[in-house]
Design a protein around this nucleic acid. Structure first.
Lengths: 191, 191
DNA sequence: AAGTTTTACCTAAAGGTGTTAGGTTGGCTG
DNA sequence: CAGCCAACCTAACACCTTTAGGTAAAACTT
């Protein structure tokens, strides 16, 4: 019989596709195996267990997101770069909802130390370098940017903003403008 | 045999406690039934299915959170009220991690229309009334505040801020200060 | 090209979970 | 005290994860 040529990557990709289709919680090894035309138990030669697959999806998503952000901020600076970074994340969350869900869970330590994670941090730093911020404040600002963008997308997806005027789009624009203004006039501790 | 006097509420509370102990995903009707000294199938006389229990935990958490926020902002205004609101959420997330996780999932429509949800919105508006904002901007500002606070807590809990100086606490303080400054000088569309 | 080894995939099985169907019994109502 | 109705039970099914051990395809050796 022809073999399926399974690899950790093919399994994780199938799981991620499944997540985008039916939600992250719908990732089951049975469903993944079914999609790959293989018995469930066969997956265990390539991945440790279900948790490892979920972590794999997380890292895959982080890698893809880093790529998207990289192209979105390339050749841009200041407000443009900020909007590029933020829009890239929001667009990713919309196009790949299951993968985005994966990014919301606590990361495995291997993921935290991954090249993709470092890349996102570097890219964010690069965007913020356009704003003349003291080095001590850079981390705080990075965290605020991450929190705002991530939080907005989460609340939007959770339906917290739905059924209320004005529409979400206007808020998104306004918030990015506000962040830009804030970073230009970042309040350093009056010491 | 003595009966357990099950109610939807007792089931949901047991599920919430389980979530705080072992994580939201660990909520299983089997475990809930075990904790209540009852057979799993017995729960079905009081709740429709597992999804209904998860939604119940969400609404329970929202209710408790509204209560916490209410006492945190009572008698405060401006920066103090802002910090109270934000700290209340962060403290809730720390003390009740499973319930907090429940709040991160898409809300059932009944939850969206619940009294607790309205209460949180009202309280947030009240806090922001201290900042002289145009009515049109109030919703945008509310969304930004929610996104920032929520996003920060999520990223903190996911470990995105760990293993990096300076510590999370300093960032939290600085971000709240920045939000306060931002709301005082909110950039309205220059029209 | 044939024999041997490796390994990718399989079948089998145990144990847990969600859910439905239908039986039994505790405790209120008359 | 009789009867009823809910509350809880047992039984059963389908599905999921994970481990153990078998089989055959592929890769390596000579």
């Amino acid at each position: 019989m022809a073999r399926a040529r399974l690899t950790p990557k093919s399994i994780i990709t199938a799981a991620a596709d499944l997540a985008d289709l039916s939600g992250f919680d719908a990732i089951s090894l049975s469903a993944v195996a079914r999609q790959l035309g293989v018995q469930t138990a066969s997956l265990y030669s390539h991945v440790r267990d279900r948790a490892a697959v979920l972590d794999g999806v997380h890292e895959l998503a982080l890698d893809e997101l880093a790529e998207q952000i990289a192209t979105a901020v390339a050749g841009r600076a200041g407000h443009e770069a900020l909007v590029g970074l933020a829009d890239a994340q929001r667009a990713y969350a919309r196009r790949w909802p299951g993968r985005w869900e994966a990014l919301q869970r606590p990361a495995a330590s291997s993921t935290v130390q991954s090249e993709a994670a470092a890349r996102v941090v570097t890219l964010t730093f690069a965007v913020l370098r356009g704003y003349a911020l003291p080095d001590d404040e850079l981390v705080h600002v990075t965290r605020m940017l991450g929190a705002s963008v991530n939080g907005f997308i989460t609340l939007e997806r959770a339906g917290n903003f739905a059924h209320r005027e004005p529409d979400t789009e206007a808020s998104w624009q306004r918030i990015l403008t506000a962040l830009d203004a804030l970073f230009r006039a970042w309040p350093t501790p009056s010491e």
